[in-house]
Simulated scan of single mutants.
Amino acid sequence: MTTASRTAPAARRPSRGRAPALLVLEDGRTFRGQSYGAVGETFGEAVFATGMTGYQETLTDPSYHRQVVVMTAPHVGNTGVNDEDPESRRIWVAGYVVRDPARVPSNWRSVRTLDEELAAQGVVGISAVDTRALTRHLRERGAMRAGIFSGEALAGADEDTLRQRVLASPPMAGADLAPEVATTEPYVVPALGTRRLTVAAVDLGIKGMTPHRMAERGIEVHVLPATATLEQVYEVAPDGVFFSNGPGDPASADQPVELMRGVLERRTPLFGICFGNQILGRALGFGTFKLKYGHRGINQPVKDLATGKVEVTAHNHGFAVDAPLHEVSATPFGRVTVSHVCLNDDVVEGLRLLDRPAFSVQYHPEAAAGPHDAAYLFDRFVSLMEGERA
């Protein structure tokens, strides 16, 4: 159970009776529905995810820590839950909002229902909500704090009182969350087949598929805590350093920024994704800012400015780098250019250094669950490391 949620003792059972539930937004708008998963109360930032599939990977993505995720797809839970697809050791979302949960899952790999899994992990959810209206509201007003209440947490409480509790919950702006989700001890993901390269991966909220994608390319991945020092990074004698995705406000992540500057000073090949892209932006001297409602889903169009190719990509971010799109910028580490841009809103989706072996993207090339348009970025990282070694 996340630090942002509290559930009643009875919440360890799926709510077959579907008790009444209430979603309360910080601006006062409310949505009534039925409980889904655990019964109790939870608080977090309300955001919407546009993927039609991959809900299990979404739930277990550490980047969703302390967020109440609204699924725009109307039917959720159709394929149940299995033990092969989680991207981390647990569900990280603070709360879950769906319209029509599946009554009976249908998939040969399913071992339990999504309702049962949410209840077992203490994740408070709400169903039978008009998620289309809720998504439109968040698009117009922006992502905001929310609370879900059911069971004893809802009984006898008026909406104004519940809203005050939502307003008392911590905002996402200023939150330093990577240390809360990252590993506390280093571990190694061995290369599949012959080991060609060694990478030190700084875990800011890494998904399990990411080191696997590198292992498929002959890379031995040493996953290090978010609090790793420069000395600890270089103890593994890396051919390259990777900075992962993760939750929170990049403006508060000072330690990873200083670590990345140390890597840039040594001119070691560097690759960052999602939160790692924002960290690179800060390390280079750019600012970051909070998006109105962010990018979340597996269907976001991104243009590679060097090739003109458009990729359909997986996203999960509420912050972005503030860098000029169509000019080369001078930084303490040489010239930098924006390499990718989102076609929906012109948000910076990638950075590339011209004078040092470093680049980053704002999206997820490991793409679990899909799409795989950006898998080439791992090959680019391999080429960068092999080029520096040569």
Rank of each mutant, 00 (worst) to 15 (best):
G17C: 07
R18E: 15
P20M: 02
A21G: 12
R29C: 10
F31C: 02
Q34L: 09
V47W: 03
A49N: 15
T50G: 11
M52K: 12
Y55K: 01
L59C: 07
H65Q: 08
R66P: 03
V69C: 02
G77M: 01
T79R: 13
T79Y: 12
G80K: 05
E84K: 13
R89A: 15
S106H: 14
W108I: 13
S110E: 06
R112D: 01
D115F: 00
E116Y: 08
L118R: 06
L118T: 03
V123W: 12
I126N: 00
V129I: 14
T131P: 08
A133N: 02
R136A: 13
H137D: 00
G142M: 07
G147Y: 08
T161F: 13
R163M: 11
R163V: 05
L167F: 10
P170M: 08
D176N: 14
L177G: 11
P179S: 01
T183Q: 04
L197V: 02
T198P: 04
A200E: 00
V202G: 03
A215E: 06
A228K: 02
A228R: 01
T229W: 04
L230A: 08
E235G: 14
F242E: 01
F243V: 03
D254E: 15
L259Y: 03
G262D: 01
P269G: 09
I273V: 12
Q278K: 08
G281N: 13
G287C: 03
G294C: 06
I298F: 14
K309A: 08
G318D: 14
E327I: 00
V336N: 06
T337F: 03
V341N: 06
L343D: 00
L351T: 06
L353R: 07
R356W: 00
P357M: 05
V361T: 09
V361I: 12
Q362C: 08
Q362P: 09
Y363C: 14
Y363N: 11
Y363F: 15
H364P: 02
A368M: 07
P371Q: 06
A375K: 12
A375T: 13
R380D: 15
M385E: 00
A390T: 10
